[in-house]
Computed example of a mutant assay.
Amino acid sequence: MQARCRVLGLARSSYYDQPRGESALSLLLMQRLDEEFTRHIFKGVVGMRDYLRQQGHAVNEKRVRVRV
């Protein structure tokens, strides 16, 4: 990015990338997790991972865990 700014004559601090939205897959997984958690609030990370795997999604605990 530094080289591009130099070529364009822009200060690097004045250039900002536009934030990207969530992917369609992430939105689908979040919707499925929300629906399942509403029905079964006692399920933890492993239970939710297993639910998504039963639905045909190859996910691990990192994908399910809430990032704070």
Rank of each mutant, 00 (worst) to 15 (best):
D17K: 14
R20Q: 11
L52N: 04
L28F: 01
A58M: 12
S26G: 03
Y51D: 06
F37K: 14
R63P: 00
A24P: 03
R53H: 08
Q18C: 08
E22D: 13
I41F: 04
G44Y: 01
R39D: 13
R32W: 01
E22V: 03
G21D: 10
R49V: 06
R32P: 00
G47K: 02
M48G: 00
V68M: 03
Q55M: 09
R39H: 14
V46C: 03
L29P: 10
V66Y: 12
G21F: 04
Q55F: 02
C5V: 06
K62R: 15
L28S: 03
T38K: 13
D50W: 00
Q55S: 06
M1A: 15
Y15N: 03
M1R: 14
L10S: 02
V59W: 01
R67M: 08
P19I: 04
L10E: 08
C5F: 06
H57D: 08
D50R: 11
Q54A: 09
R49L: 02
L27S: 10
R49D: 02
Q31G: 07
Q31M: 08
E35P: 03
A58T: 10
Q31T: 10
R49Y: 00
Y15D: 05
D50Q: 08
K62M: 04
R4K: 11
M1D: 15
F37R: 15
R53A: 04
T38I: 07
R39S: 13
R4S: 10
L27R: 15
L52D: 01
Q18N: 11
R63H: 10
L27D: 12
Q2C: 11
L52K: 00
R65A: 10
R65M: 05
F37E: 07
Q18P: 04
E36Q: 15
Q31W: 08
Q18Y: 14
S13N: 08
S14H: 12
S13H: 11
A58L: 10
H40Y: 02
A3V: 15
E35K: 04
V46L: 07
A11C: 09
V68Q: 14
S23W: 07
S23E: 11
E22K: 10
A24F: 04
V7I: 07
R20C: 04
A11M: 10
D50N: 09
P19M: 02
Y15Q: 09
D50Y: 01
Q18S: 12
R20T: 05
S26Y: 09
L33V: 04
